[in-house]
């Protein structure tokens, strides 16, 4: 009975995700009929042309503007949701995320510097930014863990969180310094840091989606280790987990997911913090369920946040990072502190 209930709720989550993407494509200054959306998508994917019975304007809006944006938002949200799951489980800290341990700041510094200096990677093509994002995110976590190892041979979670927070603050200061010294790109960099899906197209989806899928598949093979690590390093080791190696692998995968996903769209906070909390409250703690459902939940949240960012003001878009923080912070406060009070 409990399993059936859980399956029904999971189906509802997935239905909400599909509905959110459909809504994001239909809503906006030009209203689109929901019936046109599958027609346009299927016609372009399988026939490479505009379907009959749909205006050219609607076709352009769906295929060129809104569908890639909504799908990219979903992929980025899903990746951040899963990254949050990993960080919270490995570090046994409900407040841990890529932001608290310096991954986002590291990615921001790496990608921001490339943008600032106008460096591109012709060899890597459209994969340049995600790879740069992954590399800088992983460099940040490598430094954080290396320093943690030097301070604490057992690599305890508390040490990693503390060192990560110090790193995050330090890197943020470096970013501020670079921004202050480069006034000509100040606006561009600041806007990127606030996060946005504006003007993103299928090339961005094609760059982020495969990288994210590979990382997700790698992560899905380690759900048992994630479960066991929530009991702490000693217990995990006693059960047979090579805790040090697994922590490195999982933190790298989490950092890479964050790095790849925010490389194109900038810093977007709170989705990775909130999505895993919602999912755990509904589905329990098993990562075999929490991981995919956090992807669905994070993706849905991001699509809705981007929709709000796009339509809440007339003739102006808000940075999606601002929307996620404005909605996410009070929402997280209610969810997290109510949970604590009950216990």
């Amino acid at each position: 009975m409990a399993k059936l209930r859980q399956r029904l709720i999971a189906a509802a989550f997935i239905a909400a995700a599909v509905a959110s993407v459909l809504l994001a494509i239909c809503a906006g200054s030009v209203k689109i009929s929901p019936a046109d959306v599958p027609k346009v998508l299927l016609a372009h994917i399988f026939q490479g042309r505009t379907p009959e019975g749909v205006t050219v304007a609607a076709d352009t809006i769906i295929w060129t503007l809104r569908a890639p944006r909504a799908i990219l938002a979903f992929v980025v949200g899903a990746a951040l949701g899963m990254s949050g799951v990993v960080m919270q489980a490995v570090l046994r800290n409900p407040l841990a995320s890529s932001y608290t341990i310096g991954v986002s700041a590291g990615t921001s510094l790496g990608v921001g510097t490339l943008m600032l200096l106008g460096i591109s990677f012709p060899v890597l093509g459209m994969f340049g930014y995600p790879i740069a994002g992954i590399a800088s995110g992983m460099a940040a976590i490598t430094l954080a863990i290396a320093f943690s190892s030097a301070l604490d041979r057992n690599l305890s979670s508390n040490t990693i969180v503390l060192v990560g927070m110090v790193f995050s603050l330090f890197i943020s200061a470096l970013i501020s310094l670079i921004t202050a010294l480069s006034r000509q790109v100040l606006e561009r960099l600041t806007h990127w840091q606030m996060g946005s899906f504006a003007t993103r197209d299928w090339t961005h989806v094609a760059a982020v989606l495969p990288v994210t899928l590979i990382l997700v598949l790698a992560l899905c093979t380690r759900t048992r280790e994630l479960d066991i690590l929530t009991f702490g390093d000693e217990q995990a080791a006693l059960i047979g987990v090579n805790t040090k190696r697994e922590k490195w692998i999982l933190l790298y995968l989490g950092a890479a997911l964050t790095g790849a996903s925010i490389a194109f769209v900038g810093i977007i906070s709170f989705v990775d913090l909130v999505a895993p909390h919602i999912v755990r409250r509904v589905f329990g703690a098993k990562h075999r369920v929490v991981l995919p459902m956090s992807a669905v939940c994070g993706g849905t949240m991001m699509v809705i946040a981007d929709l709000v960012a796009r339509i809440v003001l007339k003739n102006q878009e808000l940075p999606v990072g601002v929307v996620t923080a404005l909605i996410g912070a009070p929402f997280f406060g209610v969810v997290f502190f109510r949970q604590r009070r009950v216990k």
Binding site: P94, T230, L238, I239, V241, N242, G284, K286
Partner: peptide, 23 residues
């Protein structure tokens, strides 16, 4: 290896604060 050792010896751990809701 940790895994081999876990098949030979186990320890009844004292459960500390567990925030994750496993059955």
């Amino acid at each position: 290896s940790r895994k081999e050792l876990a098949n030979a010896i186990s320890m009844m751990a004292q459960i500390s604060e567990q925030w994750f809701d496993f059955s």
